[in-house]
Design a protein around this nucleic acid. Structure first.
Lengths: 113, 113
DNA sequence: GTCATAGGCAACTTGGAGGTTGCTTATGAA
DNA sequence: TTCATAAGCAACCTCCAAGTTGCCTATGAC
């Protein structure tokens, strides 16, 4: 992967990580993770928050592409969207790889050129 | 993995994601990613922020275990710590796996029991 | 021993995140 | 057609995160 592409992934990864950095949103996502669309009221149940509060969290998830909204009748259904998580995973995997690489080089140097 | 363990990973993943959800910190991390310890002044260079500002970001990264601090003489050296990224990666991988599973089940059901 | 450098710590400012209440509109059910 | 339900929207509150300035301390260099 080019350095340019790396920068791009990093730039788009930060907002995704930020969206994931909240227990409420993480929990909402894990509930939507089964692929089933759910309405706002459904998703509000069990959170201890108001409908509007949950709606804001869903807005954040939607803004970074982690979920999608579809209007059905008077309901707003939210659906899990796998691409966002995939982007985040790629970023972390690249970080892991760079780290492994650095360690490997360090080891070789220690073991005597 | 047990449901209990899942909950634990989720609970400790959120603060890590939050720490990663900032471009400055993401960039600091990627610079430390090569395993080389770096002082605060070194890490400040190129950020456009003050030393104290950068120091705060490093404090956040340290608080969630993404980096470690070691005092050497009058310097504070910060070192990359791979375990945090590993935890975050595990969480995302679990999410991906659940998703794949759900899709697979859906497909089987559609293809006619 | 003196001076420059690295860093810690505290106080302060500001914008936005997370949450609420209150009101209005659309749609489904009876 | 009337009423209950789902949701949107706006205004507001509160608190913390991000960043700054300013000052003090410790350590290395000369």
């Amino acid at each position: 992967m080019s350095a340019h592409q790396s920068e791009l992934i990093a730039a788009e990864a930060a907002p995704i990580f930020a969206a994931l950095g909240d227990t409420t949103r993480l929990s909402l996502l894990s509930r939507l993770n089964d692929g089933q669309p759910r309405s706002v009221v459904q998703l509000t149940a069990g959170t201890g928050l108001t409908r509007q509060g949950v709606r804001k969290h869903l807005g954040v998830l939607e803004a970074v592409g982690l979920v999608m909204r579809e209007r059905v009748g008077r309901e707003s259904r939210f659906v899990y969207q796998p691409t966002g998580i995939e982007t985040a995973k790629q970023h972390l995997e690249r970080a892991s790889a760079q780290w492994d690489n650095a360690i490997e080089r360090l080891k070789r140097r220690l073991e005597g050129d």
